[in-house]
Structure formats: structure tokens, C-alpha cells
Design a protein around this nucleic acid. Structure first.
Length: 570
DNA sequence: GCCGTTTTCGGCCCGACTGTTTTCAGTCG
């Protein structure tokens, strides 16, 4: 999939054009780049099928950018980029990523002080050369030095599963301040994006200074980037950036809408407001300075002729059009989940016993679970051979007698390099549910991997393909596979595709979930728990399902047990 | 460079914070 590569080039072109002071074009390149990133189909396939015209169908891609995409697909380069990159110093792009430095300042540093990269920048700042530049001063020099250390430590976006508890904890403490009536996380966190760049918290209070004083002096704050009456930004000790915005109560809905984003969604919404003769900002929807609403998000969407759009859908794909025509799906919710079909115990690499997992699951209100420990090939996880599997099934029978919750007998069975399964059919027959999984040879070619998985899906006992792309967020790329072929085959064979809720996996990811829904595939949302406290990750999987426009009907573990059992019998 | 129930030309989301200004440019989200 080349979408991301081209998007990256477009983003870079935008940055360079910004540095040259070119107006508007950068916005166009960035909008197109974002469109490419959210497009779930590989751009090369789109082009193969429909040529230039198919590219131009995409939002924000017109004649010129379509031709640039074509050029990249044919030659692997974009000439425009090659020309532009020569006009700026090699390290300029790195400098742009230093907090506090933007295109204008980077260009002035280059032109007036001949600073071409990060290391020269640091030297010049330490030597006190920056503050002599017109428009710069001692403070901005200090800011840049601080930005440089930040730049070194910051790194990648943080996992949703990590940021969410931190944001909730801070939000709860803010809520305990006497002047605070509302506090809620917003931003990509509220949209439940798989990774987040920072934590945004919206606060309603009549005493903003009290909120800001508390927020900027919390024990976990490492340094304060800015502090004002309505907006403050801090860096937390674990490297996460946190923003707080304080507004008065009548603006709560407008502010929540605004700070939830996405940026592109907001732009589309504001354009719609303009068309209808309004102006939309974080204080509310207004016509000629007179505010017509802002207290709730619902009011704002309604006034613009839309149904309320769940935050997970606000990614500027087609949610606004769907909301206008009343065609938004009724999304799955956490409370729809009746069970969890993927978890491990002390029999392989889990840390809790079958009994402990069953008890914790029952406490969560589930009516069934599946115990699915590893098969023998996964040595590192102490996978079970046939003999140990026998003991495992007996143990499940024994534990079952103690619980009302139904414990399905399952296994996470390895798909071997030749596409056969790690247990033979006579063994598989003994199981209520068979999960098939890839745990080896991640570097196979796309064709090899696709054939391997398709063959496994032809086994009559397989019920679910788990973590179908094998990625680990920020750690391991997905293996190469023709996911559309896999989905089509799974649908034909009555096999469900998993949304693995484990924070580093979230696999299928949102765009693939959307694709699976378009193709009409059955899904399951599981936690892949290796301990009882992993069971709570279910909300991350449900959020990913929501981001992929999923309704409860197609998710097999929202079903009552008899219907699920019928599905598992195929 | 994109886009059009105002337009094929002339718009392009909008406001907060900071630092160095003395009315604003740059950056950020």
C-alpha cells in the first residue's frame, strides 16, 4: 500500500512550500495527504482499476495532484519534490519538528545565520547568537533550547491504551476542584484514535485561574509550555503533552465539538456553517455575532441539518454527508458485548488460571468466554501439544462446573508456513472454537502470506482469523498480505475476522474494519488477554470497531450463546 | 492546488498564546 508513502511526500512538499512563503498550496497538499491516509483502499489498486479519473474521485485530489500520484506510481518519484528539496537546507525538515519553530523562523535562521540543521541550531542557541536576530529575543532562544531537548525525548505518538487512563485520572482530579462543573477529555483521545499525540481536556469553570494554577502545578508536570486564562499546555513526566482549555458553561457543546476534531472534520463543518450563513467557533454557532447555540454538540449538528456524529466517526471520510442524509449507522457499544472469545491462561503464556479468568469475566457481566491457549509451534509461549491440550480440555470441564458463565473450549492454533494448521482435524474437532493465527515468517512475500492464510481459511474447523495483519503499533509493521482477498474468502467460508483489542495490536485496524464491513464480513472483538486486568481492553476494540462504522449485528460475540454456537458449527 | 444550491474565479476555519512589539507575526491545535 503506497498511500502513506505518497502522503508523506505531499506533507513534505507542503512544508517546503510553507518555508518559501507560498500561500494556500501547502493547505491543498496537506488536505490531499490526509485524504490519502484515510483512504482504506491501496491507491495503486484504485489507479489500476480506474486510472486518473479514479484518483480524482478522491476528496481534495484534483487534476494536478492526481498526475503527481500517477507519476509516483509509475516512476517511484515526484519531480516537483526532487526540485523543491534542493532549494532548502538538508536539515530544515528536522528543524521544523522542533516545537516553537515554524517554516518562517526556520527559513530566517537559514538565510541570516546559515543554520542548516539541528546541531548547528543548538550551537548557535548556546552561543547566544539567536537573540540578536530581529524578532527573536532571549526568551525565544531559551524556548528553542527547551524545544530541542523536547524534540530529542518526545518521539512517537503514544498508545491510546496508555494515554486513556492518564487522561481520565487528570480529568477526575480537575472535576474535584470546587469551581469545575464539567471536565472531559477531547481531541484524538475522544475519537479513540489508536495512538494520540497529546491529551486534550476541556473544562467548564467560572474560575479559570484556579483550574490553570492547579493544572500547571500537578506533581506529574515536567514543564509548562504556556499558561493563559483559557488555555494552558504542559509536558508530563512520561513525555506526554497535555492541554487544558477552560470555557464558560454556555459554550460547552461548541467547545467539546471544536476540541474533539478532527481538524479536517471541523473544517468541513465550519464550511457547512458558512454556507448556511453562520460562523462556527469554540464559543458556539453564531450569525452576525449573535450566538444561536453552543451548549450541546447535538444542538450544533442539528442546526446545521445533521444528526449528531459520534466522535469516532469524525475523520472527514463521509460522515457529514451520511449525517445529512440520516444514514449514519447505529454503532456498536461496549454494553453490546456478551463475551470475549480470545484469552490465555497459565496453560501457556497467561499469568492467571482458567478459573481466575472465568471469574473475572463473569464479574464483567459476560455470559460466555472462550479459553484459547496457544498450540505447540509457539515455543516461546509454551504452546500446548495434543497431550497437554487433553489436560486443558479436562480442566475447562472441571472449572465449568463452578460457574454459570459458559466457557467455550478453544485454542489459538498456529497457521504453519505451508498454510496447514498446528493441530490435525481430529484434534480440532474436539474444540468448540478454533482461532487461526500467524506467529512466524512475518517477512514472507505478499503472495506467499496471502496463499498461506487462504489455505488455512479452507480448513473446515477454523472459526476466526485472529489479529489478521500481525502488526504491533510502534514496534512491528504488519506482514504483507492481500487483505481484501483474505476478507472475501473469510466471508465465503463463514469465518469471522478478529478485532484484537490488545493496546499494541488493535488489529484489524479502523480502516480495515471499515473495509470488512463494506464486504459484509462477520467480526469478533476480543481482548487476547494474558491476565485478568487485560479484560478491560475490550473498550479499545469496541472503539476500533466504531471507528470502522460497525453495528452490533455483524459482531458474533454480541450474539446470544445459541446463535453464536450455530455460527461456530458452520 | 482544490472547489462550487452564491461562484469556473476567488475564496480557502478560527482563535489563543507568546514574544517582541507599540499593533502584530509566528506558531499551534
Amino acid at each position: 500500500m503506497k498511500n502513506r508513502d505518497i502522503a508523506k511526500l505531499f506533507f513534505e512538499i507542503a512544508d517546503i512550500l510553507d518555508m518559501q512563503g507560498v500561500a494556500w498550496k501547502p493547505n491543498a497538499y496537506r488536505a490531499a495527504a490526509r485524504a490519502l491516509e484515510t483512504c482504506s483502499n491501496p491507491i495503486e489498486e484504485l489507479y489500476d482499476r480506474g486510472g486518473l479519473n479514479a484518483l480524482k474521485e478522491l476528496p481534495r485530489i484534483g487534476e494536478h495532484l492526481a498526475r503527481k500520484i500517477e507519476e509516483y506510481l509509475k516512476t517511484g518519484r515526484i519531480k516537483e519534490y526532487d526540485t523543491l528539496i534542493k532549494k532548502i537546507p538538508a536539515g530544515a525538515h528536522d528543524m521544523l519538528h522542533v516545537p516553537g519553530l515554524g517554516p518562517q523562523k526556520v527559513m530566517r535562521l537559514y538565510k541570516e545565520l546559515h543554520i542548516k540543521g539541528i546541531s548547528e541550531l543548538e550551537k548557535a542557541a548556546r552561543a547566544g547568537k539567536l537573540q540578536k536576530l530581529a524578532g527573536f529575543g532571549p526568551k525565544s532562544e531559551q524556548d528553542i533550547l527547551r524545544g530541542l531537548t523536547l524534540h530529542k525525548t518526545a518521539g512517537e505518538r503514544k498508545l491510546l491504551g496508555l494515554a486513556l487512563p492518564i487522561a481520565r485520572e487528570i480529568t477526575e482530579r480537575l472535576l474535584r476542584l470546587p469551581s469545575v462543573t464539567h471536565a472531559e477529555p477531547a481531541g484524538s483521545l475522544r475519537r479513540m484514535k489508536e495512538t494520540v499525540g497529546d491529551i486534550d481536556i476541556l473544562v467548564i469553570s467560572k474560575k479559570p485561574e484556579q483550574v490553570m494554577n492547579y493544572f500547571t502545578t500537578m506533581p506529574e508536570v515536567q514543564n509548562v509550555l504556556s499558561k493563559g486564562p483559557t488555555k494552558s499546555t504542559v509536558i508530563l513526566k512520561d513525555g506526554l503533552q497535555a492541554d487544558v482549555r477552560v470555557l464558560p458553561s454556555p459554550s460547552f457543546g461548541a467547545a467539546l465539538q471544536y476540541f474533539t476534531g478532527s481538524k479536517e472534520h471541523n473544517i468541513q463543518l465550519r464550511n457547512l456553517a458558512i454556507k448556511k450563513g453562520y460562523k462556527l467557533n469554540e464559543y458556539g454557532l453564531n450569525r452576525k455575532e449573535k450566538y444561536v447555540c453552543g451548549k450541546t454538540e447535538q444542538d450544533i449538528y442539528k442546526k446545521l441539518g445533521l444528526t449528531w456524529i459520534p466522535p469516532e466517526l469524525r475523520e472527514a471520510t463521509h460522515e457529514i454527508e451520511s449525517a445529512r442524509t440520516r444514514k449514519l449507522p447505529c454503532l456498536i457499544e461496549l454494553r453490546d458485548m456478551h463475551g470475549d472469545l480470545h484469552m490465555h491462561s497459565t496453560f501457556t503464556d497467561g499469568v492467571h488460571t482458567i478459573e481466575a479468568m472465568a471469574r473475572a469475566s463473569q464479574q464483567r457481566g459476560y455470559s460466555y468466554i472462550a479459553m484459547t491457549d496457544h498450540s505447540k509451534s509457539v515455543r516461546i509461549a509454551h504452546g500446548m501439544d495434543e497431550k497437554k491440550l487433553g489436560q486443558y480440555l479436562k480442566e475447562i470441564d472441571k472449572i465449568q462446573k463452578k460457574f454459570d458463565i459458559r466457557i467455550l473450549k478453544g485454542a489459538e492454533v498456529d497457521i504453519l508456513p505451508d498454510g496447514s494448521l498446528d493441530f490435525d482435524n481430529n484434534t480440532l474437532k474436539k474444540l468448540d472454537i478454533v482461532l487461526a493465527a500467524i506467529h512466524s515468517r512475518f517477512k514472507s512475500t505478499k503472495q506467499e502470506m496471502t496463499q498461506r492464510i487462504l489455505k488455512a481459511l479452507d480448513n473446515p474447523h477454523v472459526n476466526v482469523l485472529v489479529h489478521p495483519t500481525g502488526r504491533l503499533i510502534n514496534q512491528r509493521e504488519p506482514y504483507q498480505v492481500d487483505i481484501e482477498k483474505v476478507m472475501t474468502r473469510a466471508k465465503e467460508r463463514g469465518i469471522a475476522l478478529e478485532i484484537d483489542s490488545y493496546p499494541t495490536r488493535l488489529d484489524l485496524k479502523d480502516a480495515h474494519v471499515h473495509m470488512a464491513n463494506e464486504l459484509g464480513c462477520a467480526l469478533t472483538i476480543d481482548t487476547d488477554s494474558h491476565a485478568v486486568d487485560h479484560l478491560r481492553y475490550m473498550e479499545l476494540g469496541v472503539a476500533t470497531a466504531r471507528r470502522g462504522w460497525t453495528t452490533p449485528q455483524t459482531v458474533i460475540n454480541t450474539w446470544k450463546l445459541p446463535k453464536l454456537e450455530k455460527f461456530l458449527l458452520r
